[in-house]
C-alpha cells in the first residue's frame, strides 16, 4: 500500500491555507504532521479524510485516484480531536457502528465478537455498556481509536488525538496507539503540536508552516 498526496491547494474566502502540499506514505508507515497553529494541518487531514474538498491537486491510493471519492467509501479511520463519539450510543455501539452500517457487512454475532475483541485490545472490556459522558478523557480517546480501527481502515487519520489529555495520560497512551497501529498494520497520519510525541511515535515527521510542508525527516534527523 502506498498513499500519495499530490500538490493540494485549498483556499478559504480568498486566503490560501494550503499552497501545494505533497506527501507520500509507505505501507504501515506512521507520519506525524507537526506545525504551528493555523499552518493548515487540520485542513489537510480533512481533505485526506474526504471531509473537505481540495481546490486542486489529487489523492492517490494504491494507484487509484480517490480525490473525488466520498468520505464513506475511502475506508479511512478518523480520530477526531474532540473524539466525536456518538453521545447517544454505548461504548460497544460506538465501536460497532461502522460495521453495522456497512453494506453487506458482518452479522450481528460477528459484530459483537469484533467489538469484544477491540474492547479487549484497548483494555476496556468492562465498559461496553457505558455512555461516552461516563468515560474519562483517556478512555474516550481509546474508544475513538477502537471505533476507527473497527472498520479495518486502509489508513488511520488522527487530529491531535492526545490534546485533550493531561501529560501523564498522553505519554502512557502513546505507546498503546503505536502498538494498535502496528498490530492493525495500517499507515497513519497524526497531527500534533508536540515534538516529543512526534519523535516517540512517527517513522517520519512532516513539518508544516503557512500551508506548505517545509521538511520531511525521520525523528533522528529532525532532532
Amino acid at each position: 500500500m502506498t498513499f500519495e498526496i499530490r500538490d493540494i491547494h485549498k483556499s478559504f474566502a480568498g486566503t490560501e491555507v494550503l499552497k501545494g502540499v505533497s506527501l507520500s506514505l509507505e505501507k504501515g508507515e506512521f507520519i506525524a504532521l507537526l506545525g504551528p497553529s493555523g499552518s493548515g494541518k487540520t485542513t489537510l487531514l480533512n481533505i485526506v479524510a474526504g471531509l473537505a474538498h481540495a481546490d486542486s491537486g489529487s489523492l492517490v491510493f494504491d494507484g487509484e485516484d480517490i480525490t473525488r471519492q466520498p468520505a464513506g467509501q475511502r475506508h479511512f479511520g478518523m480520530v477526531f480531536q474532540s473524539y466525536a463519539l456518538f453521545r447517544h450510543m454505548t461504548v460497544a455501539q460506538n465501536i460497532g457502528f461502522g460495521l453495522k452500517v456497512m453494506k453487506g457487512g458482518p452479522s450481528r454475532a460477528e459484530i459483537d465478537r469484533r467489538v469484544a475483541e477491540l474492547l479487549e485490545m484497548i483494555e476496556l472490556p468492562g465498559l461496553a455498556d457505558r455512555f461516552p459522558a461516563q468515560l474519562s478523557g483517556g478512555q474516550r480517546q481509546r474508544v475513538a481509536m477502537a471505533r476507527a480501527l473497527a472498520i479495518r481502515p486502509r489508513l488511520l487519520l488522527m487530529d491531535e488525538p492526545f490534546s485533550a489529555l493531561d501529560a501523564q495520560v498522553r505519554v502512557s497512551l502513546r505507546s498503546e496507539v503505536r502498538a494498535l497501529q502496528r498490530r492493525a498494520g495500517v499507515g497513519a497520519i497524526m497531527v500534533t503540536h508536540d515534538r516529543a510525541e512526534a519523535d516517540a511515535l512517527a517513522d517520519r515527521i512532516a513539518i508544516m508552516d503557512q500551508g506548505r510542508i517545509v521538511t520531511i525527516e525521520t525523528p533522528e534527523q529532525v532532532a
Binding site: A71, H75, M89, V101, R147
Partner: peptide, 23 residues
Amino acid sequence: DEEKAALTLGANGWQIFRHVVLP
C-alpha cells in the same frame, strides 16, 4: 463532528440521520 465521524465510518445519509442526528 458526530455526523462527520459517522460519514468516515461509511454511514449513508439516512443512517446518519436515523442513528446520530435523530437521537
